[in-house]
Amino acid sequence: CFEPRQPRLKKCAQEIPRLANETIFTTNEVEALYELFKKLSSSIIDDGLIHKEELQLALFQTPSGENLFVDRIFDLFDEKKNGVIEFDEFVHALSVFHPNAPMEDKIDFAFRLYDLRQTGFIEREEVKQMVIAILMESDMTLSDDLLEAIIDKTFADADADKDGRINSEEWKDFVLRNPNLLKNMTLPYLKDLTTLFPSFVFNTKLED
């Protein structure tokens, strides 16, 4: 392994092909992603790990403050649930956001994102909590009646069996009818990684 200042990062010659194998990325793209990871993981604490504050900083340009959606993204990226995002977790999660990633994976990721309590269902209370969070984030206000009306309308459309919660099949049907809901599950930048982070060639140990 290299990067002696970042001993916890196991970016070994064997790790890169392994990650390329496990994801949609080529070996050179994994190396280019490492350039992005290095920037993100050193923005506050230079330890080769992405802390929640560093994710918050990248997304909101401020390290402080709480955001429900940053928490959810962080939790889903943090596969090992050890409170930090490691390089392999970063590559695994971003693979789902690649334009060529299977639609099924994007649908599943979005479902897990919105299933706040991880019960296997997106419940009405969770949707209400998320709508309140986005209203607060955007400094918008809505009366409780309007808020309930929006949620009623959404559940009338999405909750086919009318049990007050959205299961994974209902979610799939709903997003296939409303594909714009998956728009933020695709990052076009991921198709141009080696162009965006050309400095990877100085560190490359592999040829694609």
Binding site: L40, L135, D157, L181
Partner: peptide, 25 residues
């Protein structure tokens, strides 16, 4: 107009879910 949207359209507007910002560094 938020009232014309379904709840998930509103939610998906969060900056916290816009990961393209990760590349603005």
């Amino acid at each position: 107009q938020p009232t014309a949207m379904n709840a998930f359209e509103l939610i998906s507007m969060s900056k916290g879910l816009n990961l393209s910002n990760l590349f603005d560094i």
